[in-house]
Design a protein around this nucleic acid. Structure first.
Lengths: 231, 231
DNA sequence: GGTTGTCGAGACTGTTAGTCTTGTCAAGGG
DNA sequence: CCCTTGACAAGACTAACAGTCTCGACAACC
């Protein structure tokens, strides 16, 4: 995504054919440039960026990320799988982590569930359930787990991930603030703590995998947050 | 608890070169184990283990762990700091992670707060506050953070850490079960979920450091868990 | 004195992130 | 038509680091 892409001109052409294997993608496919670039700051000299290679790298990264059994994904493997030189990867991304995160966000549905269903309880329940579900569907789960593992050692990636997750944290916080304004939460509720209870449980179970993260748990967590467990 | 180092001159314990001290993972220096492990098959020949080196390694590891600014602690650095050969480290610990965890647990007060103060609320409050406090006092915090970062890439260490934390998880669960039997928790309470809410928040905030983990938060979390936030 | 096993020191292997080099190829500009 | 510019694949290279292996010395016991 643009956040990690140092290039000023984004082709904005997401419908790339997405080569499935290590096919060398025929370096003469495009482009005649559909539509003039938005800001032609400079007439641009030299060979143009190979968009097919760009996508091939992201695809390869995501595929490796998804099938990695816990072992770290290497840049060499990504480049080889994409049929691309290593330098081509480093020309467009500053670090391995940036490639990985970009690969994940390139495909992950970016819909942050913040719908207003009328009551805090159902809003919260939906948010939690969607979060739990979304992280475990498709190739997302192993990819995300690998990504976090990499982030533990790569401060650059850790930063990127934090701003990535901040979006969702904010959405949840606003959902809660809405409920508090409606009087569905005690006025002295520490919203940040509630947010951290949700995401704390989520990441804790997601990463350790010692307990489920399903609809039942989403229900119980919602109830616990709103009603407590005492009596 | 550590050391005990009976001077080698008086082998009250004839064989078994020192796995009786702090060494849960038992590097098994010799013996090829298929025989009876408890009985010393041989009266021990050869030079004895240098207990000073053992402690020097643990001390060096803890010091590096505590002063590490996020960068991983290397075995070379530990050995050099301890004035010890690298092989001496690997003779007694199976991996870097094992050394690090041992260094931490060697010093960390192992008191798991499970005292029965009479009411679930105060038990829980004390447990949470002690957990929050204990992790942030002294050299523990940076060491623990580094350890988790290492564990993210080292499955062996991840295992060790999981059994290390299991003790505390169990203590908390029993504390909750006691309260439930007393009727202070709803009978259908999902104890594991409550445990994960506590430790989820703890680790989440501890590792990300985006929000405090102090007495006030401990109070609020306890209240949230027991009474909920809704109204 | 002989055997055994530890010691410090450090060379060595294998892996990986990231850089640099080389020869090539596409897109302009003159 | 050639020349400059910059992307490209391939792969050599550097720098870390975990973990292994070897060596000569040394200590404890027979």
């Amino acid at each position: 995504m643009p956040a990690t892409d140092p290039r000023p001109d984004t082709p904005a052409n997401p419908g790339a054919p997405a080569p499935d294997t290590a096919a060398p993608y025929t370096a003469t496919p495009d482009t005649t440039d559909p539509g003039a670039p938005a800001t032609p700051t400079r007439p641009h000299t030299g060979r143009r960026r190979n968009e097919a290679a760009h996508q091939a790298i992201l695809d390869a990264a995501l595929r490796l990320l998804a099938t990695s059994d816990g072992t770290p994904v290497t840049i060499d493997a990504i480049a080889r799988t994409a049929g691309v030189g290593k330098q081509t990867v480093y020309r467009w991304w500053p670090s391995k982590g940036a490639v990985l995160l970009d690969a994940l966000t390139d495909r992950a549905d970016q819909d942050v569930p913040g719908a207003d269903t009328g009551t805090l309880r159902s809003d919260l329940r939906a948010f939690v359930a969607t979060t739990f579900d979304g992280a475990q569907r498709g190739p997302t789960a192993p990819a995300l787990r690998t990504l976090v593992r990499e982030a533990a050692r790569d401060p650059h990636l850790a930063d990127l991930m934090q701003s990535f997750t901040a979006t969702r944290r904010t959405a949840l916080r606003e959902l809660l603030a809405r409920g508090r304004e409606r009087g569905e939460l005690a006025e002295d509720t520490d919203l940040d703590l509630v947010v951290d209870q949700v995401y704390g449980v989520f990441w804790y179970r997601f990463l350790l995998g010692h307990a489920p993260l399903d609809g039942t748990v989403a229900d119980r967590l919602t109830r616990s947050l709103l009603d407590g467990n005492g009596r």
